[in-house]
């Protein structure tokens, strides 16, 4: 009988400990969350710097062939050594004189190779407007920057 109560007591103790540990793991930010935040901030900062230095207006009239090496270098120099990324610039123009509809003119990108599909990818996106003297020469861009750890691992 003593053994029985001893077992129950020990199990309850283990159960309480396990529940407590589970509760802590739920309520505290995990390393994974920290890494996601780090990647997101990296993508956002890269986008802001490339905007400030005129990268996205420079590529506006480039072909995909011309833009790729330029975007490659611009992005790579901003990323920390353990992070890879890809920048994609979709250039749109108005389809009609009221600019009610839009046509995808060009898709430009600078790309590092995503080595494994298991990498966690973070995304930052922004819109840019380049108004022209008429609807025919007004352009808009949707810029997307993806970032991930190059070793598939952690910061």
């Amino acid at each position: 009988m003593k053994g029985f109560f001893f077992s129950i007591d020990a199990l309850i103790a283990v159960g309480v400990a396990l529940s407590f540990a589970a509760l802590i793991s739920v309520s505290t930010p995990s390393l994974q969350q920290f890494n996601e935040y780090y990647l997101f901030r990296t993508a956002q900062s890269s986008l802001a710097v490339m905007d400030a230095d005129g990268t996205f207006s420079t590529v506006l009239n480039m072909t995909a062939f011309q833009a790729k090496p330029y975007l490659d270098i611009q992005l790579k120099q901003l990323l920390p050594p353990n992070v890879d990324g890809r920048v994609e610039v979709d250039v749109y123009s108005c389809s009609d004189s009221n600019c009610d509809n839009f046509t995808l003119n060009n898709r430009l990108f600078g790309q590092q190779v995503l080595s494994t599909t298991s990498n966690k990818v973070s995304v930052a996106q922004r819109v840019f407007a380049y108004p022209g003297s008429s609807w025919q020469n007004s352009y808009f861009e949707i810029v997307t920057i993806q970032t991930w750890f190059d070793n598939g691992g952690f910061a």
Binding site: N98, C99, F102, P131, S138
Partner: peptide
């Protein structure tokens, strides 16, 4: 107006 249209589009 064009900018608002693009915002609605995107």
């Amino acid at each position: 107006q064009a900018f608002q249209n693009f915002i609605n589009f995107s």
